[in-house]
Amino acid sequence: MTADFGIKIEGVSHAYGGGQSGLASGTLALKQTDLLIGHHEFHALLGPSGCGKSTLLYLIGGFIPVQTGSISTQKGPVTAPGPDRSIVFQNFALFPWKTVLENVMYGLQKKGLPEAECREIAQAHIKLVQLGGFEQAYPSQLSGGMQQRAAIARTLAVDPDILLMDEPFGALDAQTRRVMQEELRMIWKKRPKTVVFVTHDVHEAVFLADRISIMSARPGRIEHQIDTGLGPERDESTLTDRRFVELGEQIWRLVREQAVLASRGGL
């Protein structure tokens, strides 16, 4: 298979609550967005709140129909959700009537794996996100951070070609967040996949990603793209790397520019 791209987004506009054309009276969330994400690239998406980051992920996930433009992956144009593009939602979206273990097993069962194997893989991923001992807990018995980790385990367990993550570490404390970042990067190295990682934390983006897109204030568009060029290894030492520090400052300035524009846009 030629592996020249992971996700191709061309001329995508998206309007909420308006007509079908995508340009009628509703809220215009995305405007003429183009983005090419490489095969097995770790791509971070930064931008001011409300600029359409989640919308772009939902479009790639196939949860909302593409109105204008096109989105395609190695498997062809995106038309519906599928297990080749699994997502971690900003609000976790766990199944409240299933235990942590049953939540993580769900996607594996859908793959048709034998029950024992589902259990084994699920348990390994629960350990990975440091939820060992909470297999039998229901989501409503967990803190926000724990729910978020359960959701991450559920998505990682199915090992999708494309991993979509919407501020997945947002509800975690600084300590756990650091650990999860390193774990995620490690998993990605072990089982390469195309990752689109939405965050508002500039340093998280630089630490994790190979490439970073900065979106404009709403209606969102890709305003800047930057290669981090930090190499495949990321660990403690990355944080003090001169390039890491410089990139952080440079990107922070670009993001702030857009955030200022967003606030001027009067919301």
Partner: peptide, 25 residues
């Protein structure tokens, strides 16, 4: 819609949604 979307992206078919996700919810 979130648990429904989750289930779809984990490989559930439209028909499976009804029994496995919508009914318990």
């Amino acid at each position: 819609k979130w648990p429904l979307w989750s289930a779809r992206s984990l490989g559930a078919s439209e028909n499976q949604l009804l029994r496995e996700i919508i009914l318990p919810l």
